[in-house]
Write a protein that binds this DNA or RNA. Structure first.
Lengths: 205, 205
DNA sequence: ATGCTCAGTGAGCGGATGCTCAATATCCTG
DNA sequence: CAGGATATTGAGCATCCGCTCACTGAGCAT
């Protein structure tokens, strides 16, 4: 065993990071407090800074960790998805896994460091790309109307983020994606569809 | 003149409030700093607290002031509006007048005091009500499809707030409503319309 | 065993910020 | 004009929070 010492150090670092992740899920990345992380980890305040030279460094690593997790999950979900509804479902499923962190990123990303912003926009780009591709195919088949890519994407993302951010309004204390995700997908597809009336409500007036 | 003294005091109060308004337009209501307000007003730090006993009080009054201004403007704009497009245009025009403050409210309202939240939701309710009424009329005339009220409203508000909040993405350094407002209205009406293709792009495909 | 290395400690510094209060400047009344 | 009322001052307090550093003690090499 060449590494009793190094192992323990690495474990401490990981415990600090875990505590940071938990705290960011609750209070957001902007609200992360180094003293609170230390307390939750069960180490001294100073120990945090021997692993992460700066609060910003800790936030960066924390965001990078969740960012990669979200990104990986998203790509895994999107891999088998081809249809428009599949893409939207995959998108929400990927977010659902990290709903708290994703929600905070959606709220706080403009106030986070540049590299975090780039990572966030990268995730959004991936969604936009797949959404566009699926929409093109659906439109070629005449299933949906013609909508410019940026409006297509922004309408969807605005809706999803609006419900996520204001989840206290839409699903107090619960997962807004579980409660409203299906409704959002149906609604969005309905708006895009060429059909003039709602398919899900056949007995409409 | 029974009130040289009282007048001056009232004027100071107003100047403090004006400085607070200006600062909130820049940094948001959460970012308001009493010392900075004092500096901008040209008055000592302590003077702020002889007019507003607490920072929170100052924020409350500031929000109440812009809230009433926005509300008044909104009702004035909505008064003559009957058609759906008119309602949307009136909505954006009312916001445009107070774009900075409205934007910060859209971002920060969940973190603001309860009475502020109630005022904000009241404004949103007014928009929702008019939007719903106009949509009902348009639907009766067969101009738009059937969409549940809450989804109709939330889609519109999500879209508008998304563009406002991320204006750096959509209209860096300029008014996002000036730059993109018309596009948003056209797009939203298009999504609602019974027409299967875009009216504004007759040579589609 | 001895001495070195280094993860971890915790008191405390420095700056930001909301807020207080005794002192002062200014105005009003009699 | 004298004396009181009060608007305003500004030094300073309390708290929070990121961060430092001299020190401790457990582990590791020789």
């Amino acid at each position: 065993m060449p590494t009793s010492r190094a192992q323990k150090k690495e474990m401490t670092r990981q415990r600090i990071l875990d505590a940071a992740l938990a705290q960011c899920a609750d209070r957001g990345f902007v609200g992360l407090r180094t003293a609170e992380v230390a307390r939750a980890t069960g180490v001294s305040h100073g120990a945090v800074f021997s692993h992460f030279p700066t609060r910003e460094e800790l936030v960066d690593v924390t965001v990078a960790t969740v960012g990669r997790a979200i990104s990986d999950r998203l790509h895994a979900e999107l891999r088998g998805a081809a249809g428009l509804r599949e893409i939207l479902t995959a998108h929400l499923a990927a977010i659902r896994e990290h709903e708290e962190h994703y929600r905070w990123l959606a709220i706080e990303w403009p106030n986070l460091p540049p590299q975090v912003q780039r990572a966030w926009l990268g995730i959004q780009s991936a969604i936009s790309y797949h959404l566009h591709a699926a929409a093109e195919r659906a439109r070629a088949r005449g299933e949906i109307r013609e909508v410019p890519q940026h409006l297509l994407f922004n309408t969807w993302i605005a809706l999803v983020h609006h419900y996520l951010i204001h989840r206290e309004l839409f699903a107090p204390g619960r997962s807004v994606l579980d409660e409203r995700g299906a409704e959002l997908i149906d609604h969005f597809l309905y708006l895009l569809s060429t059909a003039p009336t709602r398919a899900s409500d056949p007995g409409s007036n």
